[in-house]
Write a protein that binds this DNA or RNA. Sequence first.
DNA 1: CTGTATCCATGGCGATACTG
DNA 2: CAGTATCGCCATGGATACAG
Lengths: 234, 234
Amino acid sequence: MSGHGQFCPVAKAMELLDERWTLLVIRELLAGSTRFNELRRGVPHMSPALLSKRLEHAGLVRKRVEGTRTDYRLTQAAEELRPIVDGLAAWGGRWIGELGQEDFDPHLLLWDMRRQIDLEAWPRRRTVVAMRFTDAQPSQWWLVCREGDLDLCDFDPGFAVAATVTTRLPVMTRIWRGGRSWLHALRAEELRIDGDADAVGRVPVWLGQAGRASVPRPSERELAARREPALAGT
Amino acid sequence: MSGHGQFCPVAKAMELLDERWTLLVIRELLAGSTRFNELRRGVPHMSPALLSKRLEHAGLVRKRVEGTRTDYRLTQAAEELRPIVDGLAAWGGRWIGELGQEDFDPHLLLWDMRRQIDLEAWPRRRTVVAMRFTDAQPSQWWLVCREGDLDLCDFDPGFAVAATVTTRLPVMTRIWRGGRSWLHALRAEELRIDGDADAVGRVPVWLGQAGRASVPRPSERELAARREPALAGT
DNA sequence: CTGTATCCATGGCGATACTG
DNA sequence: CAGTATCGCCATGGATACAG
């Protein structure tokens, strides 16, 4: 039997959602990706065959062929998973602090930054922020803001760079996830920002943190409680 | 690699939660079960070996040995999964209407009813409601309310029965899940209630529906939309 | 760009029996 | 009551190559 043999709605829901990768594909679609290769980029360790299979979930994803192109969109049912995915993100950010070496990936990090960075605070004129990782390849990245759009390059686009962030990939990843603040990292000299005097101070505001990073981490008190049973009668 | 190779908090959360059965065990613990065999009863198709393994998840479950007995409690981290489990229940009840033959189980149904039924509306004196399934074994069950406690028997406890519900197991299951109302089932003669005149009318109130059954089912309009992509720009 | 096809290894999990 | 122990399968999914 592949199911759980239960009428419980949680059981029925998980029969659809507990397969490996499924919820990550949904996360990508919720974030706005619609193309096959766009999805691959968001879930790079998933094989294309498997992605294709996951995209067949009728009732969750609807495929639409437009001439030579194809796009995938969430159905209403899957759209209503948004609060659950957000809840999982908040929970994961709060309680799964530890990242393994295999979780760090400059492509994914920059790709996610490009997608989520809010350009409101950026200057109107073209502005380039470079990022340099001392411990990852590719090590050089350029975020190019122009006319309300943010482009990402892994080659020098040739424009003047307003500021350069130099750090290790895990540091930048933790900052982006919200597990560490720009200020703390700067103070601890885990990170440097060089460039125009006025830009340097604004980089933390420009880049910010992931939208889902705003969940308070557990306090020391709570972290201790994690190792103990929850109090009864909550 | 067993993980997802991503720093995304959803990915990290799912590395813990997407294993088969895990969230159902958590659901049982959230519902108040603490004993190994109590958990087995709530997840009967899971092998004891696997249950034992799932109960080892440090950070989610805390084991406490008290002499010859053992009990399991959720940690604070797992307790904070409650809104997510509730959300999944609501989503599953709303969008996964169809149940397979293998999802029906009189033990699970009555066990869940005994656990969730609210005794507020019941009489103070001892009251017995019998349930008889025409298509499932065991077919006879007795719910015995006495002094604020509800007992469940699969043998005749010998007390006077106030009312007897006779129906097929899928009908009662759907009513309990909220996919069908008592009134509709009675009108369609999918279900009969016999017994004392005053008790008969109150049985639907006494038994009610599962606490998580209160999510409105999708309208016909919504069900149609499920088959179409969600509107853009929601 | 959007997938299919094929092969193969692995380990998760089911089934069953047994123990203190 | 509260688990271990053991065995073996087969489906899941990883890897790679290829195609319309």
